[in-house]
Every structure is written in C-alpha cells, then in structure tokens.
Design a protein around this nucleic acid. Structure first.
Length: 203
DNA sequence: TGCCAGGCCCTCTTTAGGGCCTT
C-alpha cells in the first residue's frame, strides 16, 4: 500500500451542526491507518470560548466544566494540522467534518491538502440492505466489537476506522479486488448504487 | 430555550420535496 493510502480517520464533536451559523469544534479525535492497521491516535478537547448547550452535554458527555480547562480551539487545531499533514482523510458523513475542519483551520490561517472521502456514502453502496447507515448501526451490522461509547471523538473515529477496514475487506471478498486504494474508495462514493459491481469489475 | 445547514439520494422528479446523516 502506498503512502497515498495512508489515511486519517477523524471525528469532531461540536457545539452544533453549522459552522456557517457560528458553531465551533469542542473535541477532535482521529486515528492514522497505515498498511491496514491503526498506527497513531489523536484526541483533544478544545475550548470554544462559550458555554455549550445541555443538549450537547447530554449527547457527547462533554461538560462545560471539562471545556473550561481545555486549551483554545486554535491551539489544538495547530497540533491537529501537524498530525494530519498532507494525508487523505475519512469521516462518517464527511461533509459535516469537512466543513468544521476547514472552518477551524481557516481561523488559524491554515488549509488542508489531503482529500476527503466518506465512509457513510461508501457504506450506502456496499451495504444497501443495512437497516440504516448511522455509524452505530453499521458497527452492529458488521459485528464490529464495541462497548457502545459513541459520540466521543476518538471512539467514533476508532469505530469509523474499523468500519473502513471492514469495507475494504468486503470489497476484497465480494469482488476479488486485491488492493483497494483510497482513490478507488473515493470513486465508489461517486458511483450510482446500481453501478457498484461494474466499478469493481473494471478495477 | 430552541433553533439553525448542507450534500446526497430517492421518488409521487428534473419548473420539487423530503428523508437521511452529522452535532
């Protein structure tokens, strides 16, 4: 597997759903996958400079007290920018995490250079019969061991990484593709569902 | 306190609407 197939699987916890409406990141978690294995991890809380809602406290288990002593977003995002480097990126419903990553990096005058792809869009194509395509549901559907601690950034990124590797395995088993590259997975997320077989038969 | 967005994707579609996902 080439360096291009080293990927960072990441997950943000945030104050809400829209950076365009002023929402900020409160936690970033990520794992690095190299040669099909997790080789490094990143997790930090960050202080968004405001109180978070009771809904977000309940949803994530991250409290205002925990964030009081956390470093500011800019400081954490500097370190995270170094962590991701120029690697390609994966997230579950990546359009969400991409918006927050780009918004937080813009606030410290940085940009990412890696490309994003989305585990949810890939799973919708590979596991069309799954009950739904929420991260927790797919983890159960694929019988990936889990203690159910969802909605914390590192845990969700670990589970997304395991789902990602399971999808690479499914493609290998189902279509006899020996090495599934990041760029092939990216093509998968842009392929109509009815054409998935043809994509892999051409590979 | 409660609310917000946006891309994907399906269908009773394309001159649109609504569910799925993420926090």
């Amino acid at each position: 597997m080439s360096k291009a197939d080293t990927v960072i699987v990441l997950d943000f916890e945030t104050t809400g759903i829209s950076p365009g409406m002023g929402d900020r990141a409160i936690e970033i978690g990520a794992v690095r996958i190299e040669n099909g294995e997790v080789t490094d991890r990143f997790q930090e809380l960050m202080n968004p400079g405001r109180r978070i809602s009771g809904f977000i406290e309940d949803y994530t288990g991250i409290s205002n007290r925990m964030l009081q002593s956390a470093p500011p977003c800019g400081e954490v995002m500097q370190r995270f920018s170094d962590f991701i480097g120029d690697n390609n990126l994966v997230a579950h419903n990546a359009s969400f995490d991409q918006r927050f990553l780009d918004a937080e990096l813009a606030l410290i005058s940085k940009k990412r250079s890696g490309q994003f792809t989305c585990s949810m869009l890939a799973a919708r194509r590979l596991y069309q019969e799954a009950p739904n395509h929420k991260l927790g549901s797919l983890v159960r559907y694929m019988n990936i061991p889990s203690d159910g601690t969802f909605h914390r950034a590192l845990y969700d990124s670990e589970m997304t990484a395991k789902l990602w590797l399971a999808m690479l395995g499914s493609i290998g088993d189902r279509y006899a593709v020996p090495a599934v590259s990041f760029s092939l997975m990216r093509k998968l997320t842009r392929t109509p569902k009815r054409s998935v077989s043809q994509l892999f038969e051409r590979s």
